[in-house]
Simulated scan of single mutants.
Amino acid sequence: MLNELDTELFLALNGAHASWLDQAMFWISDRNFWFPFYALILLFLIWRYRIKAVGIIFTCVLAILVGDQITSSILKPWAARPRPCHEPSIEKMVHVVWECGGMYGFASSHAANTFGFVTVLVLLIGKEYPWLKWLYVWAALVSYSRIYVGAHYPGDVLVGGTVGILGAVLVSFLYRKLPLNYQI
């Protein structure tokens, strides 16, 4: 029942594509496209926090690693759920914007990584910079792009985002538990 609902929702969202939006969604979905964005955040953290930025950056990287490994190394092989573009029963209905990707898609690493990254920033410095919560819109856009390009079901994205957030909460909690003289 859940699988059928996820498939129907995927087909509705993926089917509501527009040719003029394909290129934008291709770039939004491409990890390499966001490197300048990450560099700006990195420079901001270094400018604002100097040596303390190392701890924040390390926590962001650790959250991304945790989310990525849980989704890619544990959930995808365990669930073995084909990506929509590899699912024989619907593959002809899937609008694929670029290559399909690996065989399995549950859960989305893109969603885990982006939501994990944003959550660390919000948890560690969000009180000082409340505008950081708006980065969740960016994470949601990247996650939606994965449905648009035909790589993930909505459930893959939802679980991936949840894994990313939970991983970020865990590593941020551990970072905050370090004695202050070890919090770089």
Results as ranks from 00 to 15, higher is better:
36 P>V: 04
25 M>E: 02
69 Q>E: 02
132 L>R: 04
18 A>G: 10
78 W>A: 07
148 Y>P: 09
174 L>K: 12
75 L>T: 00
28 I>A: 01
174 L>S: 05
115 F>D: 08
109 S>C: 07
90 I>F: 07
58 F>G: 09
16 A>S: 15
89 S>I: 06
91 E>C: 00
120 V>A: 09
111 A>H: 08
28 I>L: 09
41 I>K: 02
25 M>C: 10
37 F>R: 11
112 A>D: 10
110 H>R: 04
96 V>C: 03
108 S>I: 11
93 M>D: 06
120 V>G: 01
100 C>V: 09
173 F>A: 13
179 P>H: 10
25 M>L: 15
2 L>F: 14
6 D>A: 04
142 V>Y: 05
124 L>V: 06
168 A>Q: 09
166 L>Y: 01
21 L>E: 03
33 F>M: 08
29 S>M: 07
157 V>R: 09
118 V>N: 04
142 V>P: 05
71 T>G: 07
83 R>M: 02
52 K>M: 09
130 P>K: 12
157 V>I: 13
73 S>W: 12
1 M>K: 11
75 L>I: 13
50 R>D: 12
145 S>C: 13
165 I>D: 03
169 V>Q: 09
126 G>C: 07
40 L>A: 04
184 I>V: 14
146 R>M: 07
183 Q>L: 02
4 E>K: 12
43 L>D: 02
29 S>T: 06
69 Q>K: 09
79 A>R: 05
151 A>F: 01
76 K>D: 08
176 R>Q: 15
56 I>Q: 13
157 V>T: 12
116 G>W: 04
62 L>M: 14
121 L>G: 00
36 P>L: 03
172 S>G: 09
146 R>V: 10
158 L>T: 15
116 G>F: 05
105 G>L: 09
120 V>M: 07
51 I>W: 06
118 V>T: 12
14 N>D: 03
152 H>P: 02
159 V>M: 06
66 V>C: 14
14 N>C: 04
39 A>G: 02
23 Q>S: 11
161 G>A: 12
60 C>V: 15
149 V>R: 03
173 F>G: 06
2 L>I: 09
46 I>P: 01
128 E>I: 10
141 L>R: 07
107 A>N: 12
60 C>Q: 15
176 R>L: 14
94 V>D: 11
116 G>V: 08
139 A>K: 15
118 V>K: 03
179 P>T: 00
35 F>G: 10
167 G>N: 07
52 K>A: 09
95 H>T: 05
109 S>W: 02
52 K>P: 01
68 D>K: 08
90 I>P: 08
8 E>Q: 05
23 Q>V: 02
10 F>E: 00
133 K>D: 02
35 F>K: 03
9 L>S: 01
120 V>I: 12
177 K>F: 01
87 E>C: 01
99 E>L: 06
9 L>G: 10
25 M>V: 00
174 L>F: 14
59 T>W: 12
52 K>H: 12
176 R>H: 03
17 H>L: 05
174 L>I: 09
106 F>G: 05
158 L>Y: 13
74 I>A: 08
35 F>R: 04
3 N>S: 15
181 N>S: 04
17 H>Q: 02
88 P>S: 00
8 E>I: 03
63 A>E: 11
69 Q>F: 05
63 A>G: 06
163 V>I: 12
171 V>Y: 08
139 A>Y: 14
9 L>P: 00
